[in-house]
């Protein structure tokens, strides 16, 4: 596969059940060398060989950037998803050899910040595990507010409390605890940056609340990997490569192109980096845009699509690929 970034051959050195929904995977380089240094917030794309199909899913690195002996990721099982997390949970075992990408950071710390205010929901905690480790080592100022469904489903809550004490604030849905955003956003010292990673609704809530409190956009950072959503199958004509392909129900358009031997560039596979942006030559039907890259005008124009997350319903779609 030529698209994406340089690849790394790794071996799974451990698989740990964190709780009933989350498993942690440890990777070391198969050749015994150190892995590349990375920065907190980076992700890798994990290649999964699932019978005849290749799945490529991005996961945030959660291990300390100071330790490049191994990389760790945490995967939340999604029983109604397209199967990537189920593959990781059910098929990936210690000793297996896998291929992952070089780290890519689309959720970088702003190193000018006097203070980093981090807000995590559920499995959205993973990039913050790496970022807090990086900041703690350089005496950076941070505060983490982390909300989970229940205490039993909270991943790494104890480890975080142990490492960082009262810099970590925990909230549980089943106890009706809610992050006091209004109070938090009204009382931060100048030079604070906000970071949020979690479900879409939470990101919107944090961004809207920050905007209401007058925070500039440049100081509110968010990581939103929309996993591709399943949908009705559709047919696509790829004009440049002269191919007709069918996008299956639990397949993304990008994956269908790759299965047909076409390699559009990609980095995030989640609708944020813009790499796989594709021109539409003609269409008769309706786009299901799910990305965060194209503008509203571009979504309405019918001239562009992000194949990693967006879909189509209708009679015909011709793309410049």
């Amino acid at each position: 596969m030529s698209a994406g970034t340089t690849k790394l051959n790794v071996t799974v050195t451990d698989v740990v059940a964190v709780n009933e929904l989350v498993k942690r995977f440890h990777f070391e380089r198969t050749d015994g060398e150190y892995l590349p240094t990375f920065s907190g917030g980076a992700h890798v794309v994990v290649e999964m060989r699932d019978n005849d199909r290749t799945r490529l899913n991005p996961y945030s690195l959660m291990s300390s950037p100071l330790n490049t002996r191994d990389y760790t990721i945490s995967v939340r099982r999604d029983d109604s998803g397209r199967g990537g997390s189920l593959f990781m949970h059910n098929h990936v075992k210690r000793g297996m050899e896998m291929v992952i990408s070089y780290p890519v950071n689309l959720f970088s710390l702003d190193l000018r910040a006097k203070k980093h205010l981090m807000i995590a929901g559920g499995i959205g905690i993973t990039p913050f595990l790496a970022q807090t480790a990086q900041l703690a080592a350089s005496s950076g100022s941070f505060e983490l507010h982390y909300t989970c469904r229940t205490e039993a489903l909270g991943s790494y809550t104890e480890a975080l409390r142990e490492r960082y004490g009262n810099r970590v604030h925990l909230y549980y849905d089943d106890r009706n605890e809610r992050i006091p955003l209004d109070r938090l956003f009204a009382t931060q010292p100048l030079g604070t940056h906000i970071y949020v990673c979690g479900p879409e609704g939470m990101i919107r809530w944090v961004r809207d609340t920050a905007a209401q409190h007058g925070w500039p956009n440049e100081m509110v950072h968010y990581e939103h990997f929309a996993a591709p959503q399943p949908g009705k199958p559709f047919d696509v004509t790829l004009a440049l490569s002269k191919k007709e392909i069918r996008v299956g129900e639990d397949q993304s358009l990008l994956e269908a192109m790759e299965a047909a031997g076409i390699d559009p560039p990609y980095l995030c596979r989640g609708g944020v980096c813009g790499q796989c942006e594709t021109n539409v030559i003609s269409h008769d039907g309706t786009f299901k845009h799910n990305d965060h890259w194209l503008s509203k005008e571009e979504h309405c124009s019918g001239k562009k699509i992000m194949p990693c997350v967006s879909r189509f319903e209708g009679r015909s779609l011709v793309l410049e690929r």
Partner: peptide, 11 residues
């Protein structure tokens, strides 16, 4: 700029 901001480690 679009190209440069997407330069990746190792490339």
């Amino acid at each position: 700029l679009k190209f440069l901001t997407n330069i990746q480690q190792g490339q």
